[in-house]
Design a protein around this nucleic acid. Structure first.
Lengths: 305, 305
DNA sequence: TTGCAACGATACAGGATTTGTATCATAAAT
DNA sequence: ATTTATGATACAAATCCTGTATCGTTGCAA
């Protein structure tokens, strides 16, 4: 036994004596005889260099140091029990911390929903959401800075796993002042020649490509007035009457005063995807747990229309 | 070794391995050889029923459970060191809690000053001040509800120690509107026949007796208008112009808008005392420490004039 | 005052546990 | 293929702990 620090067992002995205020009774409680108990207490006192118990033949009393140490001991013993419970939780993937990198448009619904469900189902798992550009999500994933990523980019395979967690229809965002906002049954051809707020193509804006392909397929050519790089910006342009836009349906929970959202029939292949990316070969239980939690949480945005 | 809980030593072993990520290096650091180290880790894992380290021949890695347990272990080890330091502090009387019962007039200066100095000199000793009537101080002292008491009552001896910690002169409290407030050199005879706010005699008001004795000795008879039981009440009467009062000098830190305080020459024997009462035979270091702190703190109110 | 009972401290032998040396098994590196 | 480094295993020696027996002291009762 490393001469220098006291042992756990000695602490338990001390606690028993402190509570019983009797060596014999404490010994009985600890399923041992009195002499070794006395010895353990003595060793404990030697190790910490303090007298913890004042013992004369007829009474046993705690010294001030003993009083203090008793409280500490109770605390430490309890913590050591918690340590085991926590470790067990961690093993089951119910304790820890995960960081999620995500593109700004995921901040509207997906990340809050994930955070909420994590708080419910995995209350002891912390979440660190980090907003970033689509390409950064992949970089950060490779470098290990984040555990999970949410992005719209279809990524070259390799050591990174990818799941399509969102596959939702587009909706039209129309300024309230625009004549089309009145019409109830809209088709895509109604937007031919109308002012359009588009996404930029640079910096990994993926929606742009999808949308131009769709316009081509539907045979319409809106009048592109402005390009913005992120959904937030696009939506705010529309809100100020600068034109209509096409955004993923999940965006429409953002209620802005001068926007109306309208469903519109589009060819089946033109839908908005989002991918969950993760380093493959992560066999941690926590990782698995969170991964399926994210997939489950986003299921409504994948199956519904 | 009580089969059932892990030992402290095993935790230290684990921490060393977790930090070195190598059994051999960890063993060196612990001044032991590798085989027993392996064994201790194995025992630890058996005791808590979890695999903490994933070890193949070329690497040692923490499992999620190990990660969690490592943090707990660090925390517990640190706490166990603090436990010793705290116990040492407690032994020196620098850790703990004391309760002080006191009469309301001590709340004006004495208790705040004591609390302040305790915060400076004994930062880890908590103080619980309890305001009560003079006779309650003695009762609570006997029953052990308070560790110290501050009261003006001279008490029957017995198992209670008593120190005179305050012996200060009286001052006159005069309503600003009163003609005597203008006069610079006052003597006690100036107050003959003037309206006087007195202390009640009941409920252990001790000042009353002293004051009537003094009036007798000085040969004056003020006109007693009102009696109040506590200094606060008396002072507020004066503040509303109901008469002059005689109060201990320490009271004059209370600055009220319509009161002036004036020194006055009085016979030497008429001064205001306050006693520190304490159960005798309290040999605790903390108790001694706080006792002398209180005596020291109140020294200015005993020696000065 | 004396004897008894209760409690914690001490001594010591037997037993359990732990340690260290030597060795093995495996995997990366040369 | 050989070497080197790592953790696991086997076993004897040493250590430490336990329990029995006993002592010394204190409070209590006769």
């Amino acid at each position: 036994m490393a001469q220098g620090q006291f042992e756990f067992f000695q602490m338990r002995c001390f606690v028993a004596v402190a509570e019983e205020l009797s060596f014999s009774r404490a010994a009985a409680r600890l399923n041992m005889t009195q002499p070794p108990l006395s010895r353990q207490i003595k060793i404990l006192e030697e190790r910490i260099g303090l007298v913890l118990l004042e013992r004369s033949n007829k009474y046993v009393r705690l010294t001030s140091a003993g009083e203090s140490f008793y409280h500490s001991a109770i605390d430490i013993i309890q913590r050591s029990e918690h340590a085991i419970l926590n470790a067990r939780q961690a093993e089951r993937g119910e304790l820890g911390n995960v960081s999620i990198g995500f593109v700004p448009s995921a901040a509207i619904q997906f990340i809050p929903l994930i955070a909420k469900r994590m708080a419910e189902l995995l209350p002891n798992v912390g979440i660190t959401p980090i907003e970033m550009m689509g390409y950064e999500v992949i970089e950060s994933q490779r470098s290990g800075r984040i555990d999970f990523g949410l992005t719209r980019m279809e990524q070259p395979r390799g050591e990174i796993e990818r799941f399509r967690v969102v596959n939702e229809p587009f909706v039209m965002a129309i300024p309230e002042s625009h004549p089309l906002a009145e019409k109830t049954e809209l088709t895509i051809s109604d937007f031919d020649g109308e002012p359009f707020v588009s996404f930029t193509k640079d910096r990994g804006g993926f929606l742009m490509e999808t949308l131009t392909a769709m316009f081509l397929a539907c045979g319409i050519t809106p009048q592109t007035r402005i390009e913005a790089s992120q959904t937030h910006a696009v939506i705010n342009m529309v809100n100020h009457g600068l034109g209509f836009a096409i955004v993923p349906k999940s965006v429409q929970v953002m209620r802005l005063p001068n926007i109306v959202f309208r469903d519109v029939e589009l060819p089946k292949q033109f839908r908005s995807d989002m991918y969950l990316v993760t380093k493959s070969g992560q066999e941690s239980a926590l990782h698995e747990r969170v991964k399926s939690l994210i997939i489950d949480t986003l299921a409504p945005f994948r199956e519904s229309d």
